[in-house]
């Protein structure tokens, strides 16, 4: 996982498998950074994610709550088709006004 910050925008390049087991560590790393930087925009890039179950949705929902708590915005980008399927089940793109762009695997 790589994190790049430019101005008030922080981009997290997620990679590998996101399940309940791995989500805990990912969450901790992201939150430590966002608590420090309070980014205006937090971008979660899913292009290198090889597996995701509903723990990925929980991860996005939790980060959305965190950034919006200090007035920030969340963007979810480069979601592979099959990730998008799960993400859509949560209705997240409606509730959270999350910008989702589909990508190819």
């Amino acid at each position: 996982m790589e994190m790049i910050t430019s101005g008030k925008c922080m981009t997290v390049f997620l990679s590998g498998e996101i399940d309940h087991h791995t989500a805990a560590g990912i969450r901790k790393q992201i939150d430590e950074e966002t608590d420090k930087l309070l980014p205006q925009v937090l971008v979660l890039d899913f292009s290198a994610v090889t597996f995701m179950d509903s723990s990925g949705v929980g991860l996005v929902m939790g980060r959305y709550r965190n950034v919006s708590a200090h007035g920030g915005r969340l963007e979810v980008v480069n979601l592979p088709e099959w990730c998008y399927r799960i993400m859509k089940m949560s209705g997240l793109e409606k509730i959270a006004k999350i910008h989702m762009t589909g990508g190819k695997r």
């Binding site: 509903s54 723990s55 929980g58 929902m61 939790g62 799960i86 949560s90």
Partner: peptide, 20 residues
Amino acid sequence: PLYSSLGGERAGLGFAVMES
């Protein structure tokens, strides 16, 4: 769907995903 007894970081989608 979206019900979780634990809330927080759990999306409550487990069974919905299995079903779908």
